[in-house]
């Protein structure tokens, strides 16, 4: 029997994959909306990653690989749960600004961190995911497209709409 403390594969996994656990957990909290569910998602992510660790090539983009697994876990979880809580997204709610800045530019003065995080949590799952990947986790459009399994054009348009929606929500917050 292998001694688990000396298993070289586990040592590599801990060094390369577990280093990203906090990053994944932080993102998962905003993806699924609660710390408890986020912990379950992250735990399942690492168990799946370990199961398929043979397919991972050491030294490549481990963080991107883990995020792709995590989004698969989240999608699978959503598919299992009945989507009664999801409100259909109405594109017309976005307002009439198509290009960034079609409306008067808005600088978020007086807006606090919690306001913008609350606004992010009000976005649709798709828009929140792409905004978080690019603006917070710093993934490129190509990496985000690979993680989400969508074309780059979709990443760009969702990102564009997410930013517009954040501005609209913050403006509403400020004026309302």
């Amino acid at each position: 029997m292998t001694n688990p403390e000396r298993d070289p594969r586990l040592e590599i996994f801990e060094r390369e994959a577990m280093a990203h656990l906090e990053n994944l957990l932080r993102t998962a909290v905003h993806l699924v909306g609660s710390v408890g569910r986020a912990e379950d998602v992250v735990q399942e992510t690492f168990l799946r990653a370990w199961k398929h660790f043979d397919s991972y090539e050491s030294g490549t983009n481990c963080r991107g690989w883990l995020f792709r697994i995590m989004f698969n876990v989240v999608h699978a979880e959503r598919a299992r749960t009945v989507k009664l809580s999801e409100v259909p997204f109405d594109e017309s709610d976005l307002g009439d600004g198509h290009l960034l800045g079609a409306n008067v530019p808005f600088t978020p003065r007086g807006i606090e961190g919690r306001d913008i995080l609350e606004a992010v949590d009000k976005l649709t799952d798709e828009h929140r995911a792409v905004l978080w990947l690019v603006a917070v986790d710093g993934f490129s459009y190509r990496e985000s497209a690979d993680i989400l399994g969508v074309p780059i054009g979709t990443v760009m348009s969702r990102l564009h709409r997410a930013r517009l929606e954040i501005r609209r929500l913050l403006q509403t917050e400020r004026t309302g």
Binding site: R26, H30, P108, I111, E112, G113, R114, I116, L117, V120, L131, W132, A135, V136, R163, I166, R167, L170
Partner: peptide
């Protein structure tokens, strides 16, 4: 907007 989001996150 992005800076505030990242810092807050």
């Amino acid at each position: 907007q992005d800076r505030l989001l990242k810092q807050s996150a």
